[in-house]
Every structure is written in structure tokens, then in C-alpha cells.
């Protein structure tokens, strides 16, 4: 039996952590805990990316997702205060069917996948290559893949417009005084003299 190298040990450690925390996200009863486990998921996958020598992506994942997005998400979940336990009432009813489908799917995957299947993939950067992660990514994004990159930007713009259009409630009228208007007011604007015709009480016809 060959002993694990340190790198393999790290890989299995991070993968195990990723799978465990992903399971906890789905199975946890408390939604705040689920979000926290999702954070752990991101940290674990950042570790996996570091093993692949994609330092920039790993750092971006931690900074952007763990640091910013998930914190926002956590706030939202805390504010919503949804009781997920009641929503899970029908969970056990569909569980057998879901398990059968999942196991059948797993069996299928096991049938199909073996070590050589994914050998067409370009290999990850090896240790000897002295490449700059950011530079490579930038070159790819801004030259070869500029079109998908622009589309992704449009999607973000649309997400912004959509979010605003769903939550915007129109201008709120503040009930503060406008001193200028009050001073400039004239008699004609405020006072209206109405002359009434004399009303004659008519007797209702019999």
C-alpha cells in the first residue's frame, strides 16, 4: 500500500470537509447554521483550488463569497426568520422515492465513470510552470472570452435592474415643510370666494 503524499492528504481532507459541510447545508434544521456551513463549503473549495494552483480564484472566492456575499446572505436569512422545520413536514413522505432515484443515479454514474473518462481535459498547471495566475486569467477573459465575459456583465446589470424594479415602491412623499413655498403663497392661491345661488326649498311633488 502506497502511503499518502502530503498533497493527497490535503486533497482528501478538503474534499471530505466540502462534502460534509454541503450535506449539513441541506440537512440542517436551522437555516442560519445552513448558511454558515455554506461558508465552510466555500472555504473548503477555495482550499481545493489552491491545491490546483489557482491562487487567484481561491483568494477571490474567499474574499468575494465568504467575505461579502455570504455575510449579506446571512443577514437576509436572519432577518427573514423562516421556520424551516414546518416546511419540511412532507420531507419523509418523498424520501423513499428520492433515495431510490439518487441511488439509481449513483449506480449509473459508477457504471460510466472511470479514471480515463476525463483524460481529454487540459491538465492543471504543474509546479514547474512559472505562470502568473492573474495574468493568465486576465488574458483569457479580456481577449479570447471577451464575448461571454461581456454577457456575464449584462446579466449582472439585468439582475440589478430586476432587483430594483421588484422592490422599488415609488417616491415617498416626505411631510416636511417647504418654507419657500409657504412664504411665497398669495391670497389668490389660498382663498377662494364662491358665490352660491340662493337655494329655494321646493316642496316635493305629491
Amino acid at each position: 500500500m502506497s502511503s499518502l503524499t502530503f498533497e493527497q492528504l490535503l486533497f482528501y481532507g478538503f474534499s471530505g470537509l466540502l462534502i460534509m459541510s454541503a450535506l449539513m447545508v441541506v440537512l440542517g434544521k436551522n437555516s442560519v447554521k445552513s448558511v454558515l456551513f455554506l461558508v465552510l463549503c466555500f472555504v473548503a473549495s477555495a482550499g481545493l483550488w489552491l491545491l490546483l494552483r489557482a491562487e487567484f480564484l481561491a483568494v477571490a472566492l474567499v474574499l468575494v463569497y465568504v467575505g461579502a456575499v455570504m455575510v449579506l446572505f446571512l443577514f437576509v436569512v436572519m432577518m427573514l426568520d423562516v421556520n424551516f422545520a414546518t416546511k419540511k413536514a412532507g420531507f419523509t413522505k418523498v424520501l423513499p422515492l428520492a433515495l431510490i432515484i439518487a441511488l439509481a443515479f449513483l449506480a449509473l454514474m459508477k457504471q460510466f465513470f472511470n479514471a480515463e473518462v476525463f483524460n481529454q481535459l487540459p491538465s492543471a498547471v504543474s509546479a514547474s510552470d512559472n505562470v502568473n495566475n492573474v495574468e493568465q486569467l486576465g488574458l483569457l477573459l479580456y481577449t479570447d472570452y471577451f464575448y461571454p465575459f461581456e454577457i456575464a456583465a449584462v446579466i449582472l446589470l439585468v439582475a440589478m435592474v430586476a432587483a430594483i424594479s421588484l422592490t422599488f415602491r415609488g417616491k415617498r412623499n416626505r411631510k416636511s415643510q417647504n418654507i419657500d413655498k409657504q412664504v411665497k403663497v398669495t391670497k389668490a392661491e389660498r382663498l377662494r370666494i364662491i358665490s352660491f345661488e340662493k337655494e329655494v326649498n321646493k316642496e316635493p311633488k305629491a
Binding site: 454577457i151 449584462v154 446579466i155 439585468v158 439582475a159 435592474v161 430586476a162 432587483a163 424594479s165 421588484l166
Partner: peptide, 8 residues
Amino acid sequence: LLSLTMYA
């Protein structure tokens, strides 16, 4: 892009 606009 299409789906996102339609959801909104």
C-alpha cells in the same frame, strides 16, 4: 440572461 429577465 433570457430566464432572469423573464423571472423578474
